[in-house]
Design a protein around this nucleic acid. Structure first.
Length: 936
RNA sequence: GGGCGGGUAGCUCAGCGGCAGAGCGUCGCCCUUACAAGGCGGGGGUCGCAGGUUCGAACCCUGCUCCGCCCACCA
């Protein structure tokens, strides 16, 4: 038997969350077993960068994943959620090298490869698991025993295996290509890592003297590259230049002579129709040089400075300095024509921000076009579905136009390329184990390729490398393919597409059945959160709270710029209140509609914190009233349906409906629909109505009053049971508060130790009570109408009013009579039932419910005829408008002939109701005019 | 230059052929013993513009317009 439990009036998440997190972890509830026979449901967490800390994008994505995994686990699936972190090659370099520069004034080259890597590992050991700790605090039920890292032994082995296999198959190769060079990080970056921005620059016109007389005009946005020119090209059909093709020009400043060539890529309409050709530093020019057969002269080096064979005086200058010098010298020599402002697209490295230099270099590539085929087919055939579906086009478009993927990087932190060059022959040995001899000539003098692999190479293998591949493990057999991958749309190309290609290639199966693309979290103004703008809402600040001073101190420690400090002061003037993980999680779910962006503001989260608190207090109320309750006895009463009221039947029916709604919504990844359905149920059905209706029955009566005691027991049981099931429904969204409440609720003995391993409710159609829902809805309308009259006339709460209810249909009369107490309690007044055709007292305020029930509130002299007339006239106006529309529709022969019969019948019924309503309202208005005249 | 998404209440967004909705904000009344982080009630919309299809359009089609985003080697 249960006794009352007292809870604090305000919910304090901090203590509760820490306690249950420990409990879940200690009891291994997050762990999954690949040998379990139940249906597997596996997901892989997109591994965050080891450099990172949890940001709102992670919080959103991971909350949606945790909702799915907790939901499926409760449904009985073998739910596995794989955690891990990514070594994030460039990001780590960036961070460590910046630090090295600041503290010791050194570069990574001063330190050397080995020493640098030592530091990197030390740093990783020290701060690499910070983000995992943060994920735990959010309540994410990741299977921590499986936690992996993209540079751990298993991943290393998978990377080697994949590289070697692809190389054997000719899908990885080494080639001289035009690549994107980041001179700040001194590495190649892939096409995806370059952001092209249109910047304002200039178009310089250069006048190249032709050998033998005359000149030819060329235009360029990068005059400094002329030092590497090896030709001038014109269109072969351009009559202006036909005679010049084959002649040479005297390339200013260099003393070189280069030919005038014809190539059809030249647009005769642009500028002069002649273009300078710099094969080493422009992709177009390089292509042209291949077609025409021109030498390639590299005049810009790895750090973005001019180098030989550029003339001595320019060597060592940055491209920017060189530009000034070259322009000045050209001008001095009379080689400069017009200079016009011009928009130039400029590629910048995403990570370093440096202007990317197109360079011709030998690098390793993945032949993506071959791998893309199956990845395209799999999506076309629906083996993998993208949700929301719109993203399919984006994926397809990119895949169909995919280019070879440059995978080598001139960095140190990462997977070193398993290729060895031989001192005595040209053979390149690619091997799983470090070789001791050249596979070509047997020579012993081998040198391993200095480069490492693009971080995304190991990420591409992640869905199966984490499950033991290349070994054929039980885990791989059970959890591959994953059920769902949830990630942000900005890494569809970087990651999703590449996992699809690699997964299909190595396993012959798609890596996941559904890709759920999350929204991008922005601030309340729709701006992307950025540290520079100072508008970043840190998820853990929301959970634990943060003062403005603490936020500023943190920004200062990160050397945030002045604008960021200003932004923080403006956006977080009062700091961030502590709201708990549940409030944040629920907010993210409730605001996550199918749009591409999710605007988050602290106000919104605060609103949902109110919801958590509301739930807390409703539970408090229930627990305060559980004296003498016995769950077993209730189950017996439930079996024979003894003593059930309309309200009991109604709330239980509503519970079934909300469970069905949540189930359907989660199946369709409609998280906001699911969250809002629960919100609506808890607040507006359970709290606003059922708990209010329960109150009178919870009062302790005389023990010998058996009927009353039984009734009380039923109400207690309904409350406890509905609340218990509500906790289950809500648990994936707000795991902590629901566990806390659930543990305290009186409940049948056979349930497990934790809410998170109970069975998730599914809506049961048989338990939906249509009649109870319909009756309850009508009674609610009556109560609401009565409250409206009361509120309109400002009847003081202390004043007892008796309303008169007039209803025409006998069933409605019976319903109202039977549930008089319900109406009186919820509208806080007394009521009498009168004959429909009897006249209400003069000076009564009136309201209609539908067309056949009227409420009259006698107010004696208190009624204000002006207010009342205006109110009723407005109501009448609306009704007239409705009738007008309906009559027009029903008067239309086409409508009657072509619309489905049920629609026609429905419209007829509505018309009848509206007409009845109009009659009654008109009467009221007339009566009021007489009464009003008398009164005045 | 191509492609994608969006314009619905003051704000944020659902609805995507059959009575225009929610949350928040706003206004009025109320400390009614679960909750003032609360209760009750009210007001608020030519569904971006113009055509078309349909018995019927916020919803489907066409054009226009404005706002985002992604892709693209034009000097």
């Amino acid at each position: 038997m249960s006794t009352s439990v007292a809870l604090p009036k305000q919910y304090d998440p901090s203590e509760v969350e820490a306690r249950w997190l420990r409990f879940w972890l200690e009891n291994g509830y997050f762990h999954s077993d690949e040998s379990t026979a139940t249906v597997p449901f596996a997901m892989t967490l997109p591994p965050p960068n080891v450099t990172g800390s949890l940001h709102m994008g992670h919080a959103l994505g991971s909350t949606m994943q945790d909702i799915l995994i907790r939901w499926r686990r409760m449904q009985g699936s073998n739910a596995m959620w794989m955690p891990g972190t990514d070594h994030a090659s460039i990001a780590v370099h960036h961070l460590l090298e910046r630090d090295l520069k600041r503290r010791e004034g050194k570069t990574r080259f001063d330190l050397g490869r080995e020493a640098f890597l030592e530091r990197a590992w030390a740093w990783k050991e020290k701060s690499g698991n910070r983000i995992s700790e943060q994920e735990k605090l959010m309540g994410f039920s990741l299977d921590w025993q499986r936690e992996r890292f993209t540079m751990d032994e298993g991943s290393n082995r998978a990377v080697r295996e994949a590289f070697v296999l692809l190389h054997e198959q000719g899908l990885i190769f080494r080639a001289m290509r035009m690549i994107n060079w980041d001179p700040a990080s001194e590495t190649v970056v892939s096409d995806l890592e370059v952001d092209v921005v249109e910047e304002s620059g200039h178009l310089w016109e250069l006048r190249y003297p032709i050998v033998g007389g005359g000149e030819i005009l060329v235009a360029t946005t990068r005059p400094e590259t002329m030092l590497g020119d090896t030709a001038v090209a014109v269109h072969p059909d351009d009559a202006r230049y036909t005679a010049l093709v084959g002649k040479e020009i005297e390339l200013p400043l260099t003393g070189r002579r280069v030919p005038i060539v014809a190539d059809s890529f030249v647009d005769p309409e642009f500028g002069s129709g002649a273009v300078k050709i710099t094969p080493a530093h422009d992709p177009n020019d390089y292509e042209c040089s291949l077609r025409v057969g021109l030498p390639v002269l590299q005049v810009i080096d790895r750090v973005g400075k001019m180098c030989a064979p550029a003339p001595e005086k320019y060597v060592g200058l940055t491209t920017e300095q060189a530009r000034k010098a070259v322009v000045a010298d050209l001008e001095a020599g009379g080689f400069l024509g017009e200079i016009k402002p011009h928009k130039v697209p400029r590629g910048r490295s995403q990570r370093s921000g440096a202007v990317v230099e197109p360079m011709l270099m030998e690098q390793w590539f993945v032949r993506a076009s071959t791998l893309a085929g199956p990845a395209i087919a799999a999506v076309q055939e629906g083996k993998t579905k993208l949700v929301p579906e719109e993203w399919t086009k984006t994926y397809m478009h990119w895949m169909e136009n995919i280019r070879d993927w440059c995978i080598s990087r001139q960095l140190w932190w990462g997977h070193r390329i398993p290729a060895w060059y031989c001192a005595s022959c040209a053979h390149i040995t690619v091997a799983r184990e470090d070789p001791t001899a050249c596979a070509g000539c047997g020579g012993a003098e081998l040198r391993q390729d200095e480069d490492i692999l693009d971080t995304w190479f190991s990420s591409a293998l992640w869905p199966f490398s984490t499950l033991g591949w290349p070994d054929k493990t039980r885990a791989l057999a059970t959890y591959y393919p994953n059920a769902v991958l949830a990630t942000a749309p900005d890494i569809i190309f970087f990651w999703v597409a590449r996992m699809m290609m690699m997964g299909l290639h190595f396993l012959g199966k798609v890596p996941f059945r559904t890709v759920y693309l999350t929204a991008i979290v922005t601030d309340e103004n729709g701006d992307k959160m950025s540290k520079v703008k100072g508008n970043v809402i840190d998820p853990l600040d929301v959970v634990f709270g943060a003062t403005l001073d603490a936020m500023l101190a943190r920004a200062d420690a990160e050397n945030a710029p002045e604008v960021a400090i200003k932004g923080i002061k403006k956006n977080f003037a009062k700091g961030v209140p502590a709201m708990g993980a549940d409030a944040l999680r629920f907010s993210l779910a409730a605001l996550n509609t199918s749009g591409r962006y999710l605007r988050l503001s602290l106000d919104r989260v605060e609103g949902y914190r109110h919801f958590i608190n509301k739930l807390w207090n409703a539970s408090r109320f229930v627990l305060m009233n559980m004296d003498g309750y016995d769950a077993a006895r209730f189950e017996a009463l439930r079996a024979n349906r003894g003593g059930w009221s309309l309200a009991d039947r109604w709330i239980l029916s509503r519970l079934q409906r909300v469970a069905a709604e949540v189930d359907a919504a989660l199946e369709a990844f409609r998280f906001s629909d699911a969250a809002n359905a629960i919100y609506q149920f808890v607040w507006h059905q359970l709290c606003d109505w059922y708990i209010e209706l329960a109150k009178p029955f919870l009062l302790q009566g005389e023990p010998q009053d058996v009927a009353r005691t039984t009734r009380r027991h039923v109400v207690q049981g309904v409350l406890a049971s509905v609340l218990e099931h509500t906790m289950r429904l809500l648990h994936p969204f707000a795991p902590y508060v629901t566990e806390e409440i659930w543990q305290k609720l009186p409940k049948p003995a056979q349930l497990p130790e934790s809410l998170m391993v109970t069975v998730y409710p599914r809506g049961d159609e048989h338990l939906v009570d249509v009649e109870a829902e319909r009756d309850m809805a009508q009674l609610q309308e009556v109560a609401v109408a009565a409250r409206m009259l009361r509120s309109t006339y400002g009847v003081p709460p202390a004043q007892t009013v008796t309303i008169e209810v007039r209803a025409r249909p006998p069933a409605l009369r019976a319903l109202v009579t039977e549930h008089q107490a319900l109406i009186e309690h919820t509208a806080k007044l007394r009521m009498t039932l009168c004959d429909f055709d009897s006249a209400p007292p003069s000076g009564a305020a009136k309201a209609m419910v539908g067309g056949e029930l009227e409420i009259a509130m006698p107010l004696g002299g208190l009624i204000d005829p002006v207010t009342e007339r205006a109110r009723i006239a407005k109501d009448l106006g609306k009704t007239d408008k409705e009738i007008g529309g309906l009559e027009k529709k029903l008067g239309n022969a086409d409508f009657l002939a072509k619309a489905p019969p049920d629609v026609v019948a429905e419209q007829r019924a509505r018309l009848a109701e509206e007409q009845a309503r109009r009659g009654r309202l008109q009467e009221a208005l007339e009566l009021l005019s007489q009464g009003g005249a008398e009164g005045a």
